[in-house]
């Protein structure tokens, strides 16, 4: 188990190096000279060249990459030319906001889908099961952009219940959170439902009931644990999708997180900011998958860490 974990970590490091490489190459391939952007349209050639030297862009790509990587190894994520400060500083502020939003969305969506899926699975074939299925099907087919607009239209414009833009209290988080978690909730509801239906057909459920354990206890304590296993493994993967949605949702609701930042940074050709933002996102994603695997071994005694 320990060996496997180490191997897995080694692979993770390799993947993350790959991510920095891709990000680096992509940014260099792009047109648009960041030095020109920094210097502004009125700048003379000398001024631009000056910027180029200061930004390290005059050096070879290899040197640029190695310099960047060396920085990362020392905890320096680079310098953002559009924000005129260190990338680490920009990212850390934004990361907190993204964390708040994704965790909030993930949390409410998880709770909601597990509840709905469990009830639907137990009441297989009932009206509530139908509602859950409908929600699952529609939720998986909806554009996140469109959903955001519709939410704004209903709760922001028509009912005026919720603020539509920016940071603030909890009520600012509700719409973007729902928007972000919607698709995930649909997938999980569906899995939870079918998982519960399958588990309830198992012999061991009847066997538990034959020991005199009440129906509700059998379902909610004994069967639920079995049904939750696939849900938990899926959580890690699904968190990745949720994270991807951040780019769109943060832009729609003007939420100053890492997703919105990435869009701005790409438009500004802020090389190091984009590179590090992608890296951080990947780290999060990879960590979530790892965490899900570890969690899985904890809840399912049959699986040891592979």
């Amino acid at each position: 188990m320990r060996n496997n974990l180490l191997k897995r970590l080694g692979l993770t490091v390799f993947v993350l190096i790959g991510v920095t490489l891709i990000a680096f190459v992509l940014m260099r391939l792009g047109g648009g000279d960041p030095a020109v952007m920094m210097a502004g349209g009125m700048a003379t050639k000398e001024e631009v060249q000056d910027y180029r030297v200061r930004m390290g862009l005059d050096q070879s790509y290899l040197v640029q990459y190695l310099t960047y990587m060396n920085g990362i190894l020392h905890g320096d994520l680079g310098y953002s030319w559009s924000y005129h400060t260190s990338v680490g500083e920009v990212l850390s502020v934004r990361l907190v906001q993204t964390f708040n939003l994704t965790l909030f969305g993930f949390f409410i969506a998880s709770i909601f889908s597990m509840l709905l899926g469990t009830i639907a699975g137990i009441r297989h074939g009932s009206p509530i099961d139908f509602v859950a299925l409908l929600f699952a099907i529609i939720g998986q087919s909806m554009s996140i952009v469109w959903l955001g607009f519709v939410l704004i239209l209903i709760f922001g414009v028509q009912l005026k219940w919720l603020p539509t833009q920016g940071l603030g209290g909890l009520q600012h988080m509700i719409m973007p959170g729902i928007c972000l978690g919607f698709g995930y909730a649909a997938v999980q509801t569906r899995m939870m439902r079918s998982g519960m239906v399958d588990v309830l057909k198992e012999d061991y459920v009847v066997a538990t009931r034959a020991r005199g354990i009440s129906k509700s206890r059998t379902y909610l304590v004994y069967a639920l644990r079995n049904a939750l296993l696939p849900i938990i493994t899926n959580m890690g993967n699904q968190f990745g999708h949720l994270l991807a949605g951040v780019v769109v949702v943060e832009t729609i609701f003007n939420w100053p997180g890492i997703g919105q930042l990435l869009v701005q940074a790409i438009n500004m050709r802020d090389y190091q900011l984009v590179q590090s933002a992608l890296l951080i996102t990947s780290i999060l994603l990879v960590l979530c998958n790892l965490l899900a695997d570890i969690l899985y071994t904890v809840v399912d005694p049959r699986i040891s860490f592979q």
Binding site: V19, I22, M27, H241, A244, L262, T281
Partner: peptide, 14 residues
Amino acid sequence: DVLMSIPNIMLALC
């Protein structure tokens, strides 16, 4: 592995 560990939309955006 590498491509899967960057969210699709972010990669596409870049």
